[in-house]
Simulated assay, not measured.
Amino acid sequence: MQSHTIKIWAWVHKWSSLICTLFMLLLCLTGLPLIFHHEIGHLLGTEVEAPAMPKDTPHASLDKVLELARAQHPDRIVQFVSKSDDTDDIWYVTMTHTPANTDDFRTVIVDARTTELLAPQLRFDEGFMWVMFRLHVDLFAGLPGKLFLGFMGLLLLVAIVSGVVLYAPFMRKLEFGTVRRERTARVKWLDLHNLLGIVTLVWLFVVGATGMINTWADLVIKYWQHDQLSSVLAPYQGQPTVALAERAPVQQSLDAAMQQVPGSKLSFIAFPGTSYSSPHHNTVFLRGDEPLTSKLLRPVLVDAKTSAVTAAPQIPWYLTALLVSQPLHFGDYGGRVMQIIWALLDIASIFVLGTGLYLWLKKGRAAAQPVDRKLAGKTTPQEATP
């Protein structure tokens, strides 16, 4: 590689790394507890478990569950109702003052079999894990914060690619994994930085890419609604949001959706007027029962008045990419083993980012000192620009 080309790649690697490093450190630090959010939730008491009952215990009508939830917060409306991936025996009812997205929500947890109230007012908008989540997702800045972090993720990908380009000629002179302990402290840290950078390369690229995609979620969903649902909703144009008194039992909507897509499981239901539905439908989001298909959602739009299925569109490729990237980002595919691997790689990435920042700070102090050329013969691009 020509010297001029190396200098260009070194400049790209230097500035893309420096600009994103502090934010990537923040994301790695906040992402570490989020990998174990279920386990930490159990410790903090924010994870609720259903009491043990025979597996064939029948479930009560969803309308009874909603009636109980509304009685706890009569001043609020039901925005979503959902089930977790782990069990079908618990309903999570999300209630707000308005159908629009808001941080002011309450979650009522109800036993799906007995309609027993398990948690009347569980809050997910406070506490340690909520702070970690908001810092990781949007820096408490909403959509602008998400897009900013997405741009930082893009710079991370640029830094990774440029680092690989610079690492290739560097390693022609050294064996893989070499740490030159007899050299200066800066050179030893540089070798460790390069070694762990290559070891974590694929993981950091995958996590950075999926994290960047996740920051586009709000925009992707809005585009999907405009692109895929506008023709479906054309017959309802001009009609007001269906009132609660005019709606058919929600259990009928759920049954109709399950019959439309046999062999699926419920993920959540979005009610009329909310961000994931239309003003006229209960939108039932179903998922598969296999490890991969369990992360993919199939929306079924059910008329809230008649309980008739209006549409069950296949999700487009860009929404599939979003749904796959979300669990992959946090290592939610492979159980506990995957979580541990993700955590170890996260810690290694913190080291890579921290040493990169250290090397840049040390470079200024060492600039006036003579360069040790005893073993290398000349300064490598990596010694000049970490």
Rank of each mutant, 00 (worst) to 15 (best):
S84P: 09
S84T: 15
D86F: 06
D86H: 11
T87W: 11
D88Y: 08
D89R: 12
D89E: 12
D89P: 08
D89I: 03
I90W: 03
I90E: 08
W91F: 14
Y92W: 14
Y92C: 04
Y92T: 08
T94P: 05
M95C: 00
M95W: 00
M95H: 01
T96A: 15
T96H: 14
H97F: 08
H97G: 15
T98E: 14
P99W: 01
T102A: 11
D104H: 10
F105W: 08
F105E: 14
F105H: 08
R106F: 00
R106H: 14
T107V: 12
T107F: 04
T107I: 07
V108L: 05
V108D: 02
I109N: 07
I109E: 09
I109R: 12
V110N: 05
V110K: 01
D111S: 04
A112R: 07
A112H: 02
A112S: 07
T114F: 00
T115H: 06
T115N: 12
T115I: 10
L117R: 05
L117N: 02
L117P: 02
L118K: 00
Q121F: 12
L122T: 00
R123K: 13
R123H: 06
R123P: 05
R123Y: 00
R123N: 03
F124Q: 02
D125H: 07
E126V: 14
G127M: 06
G127E: 07
G127Q: 02
F128Y: 13
M129L: 15
M129W: 10
W130M: 10
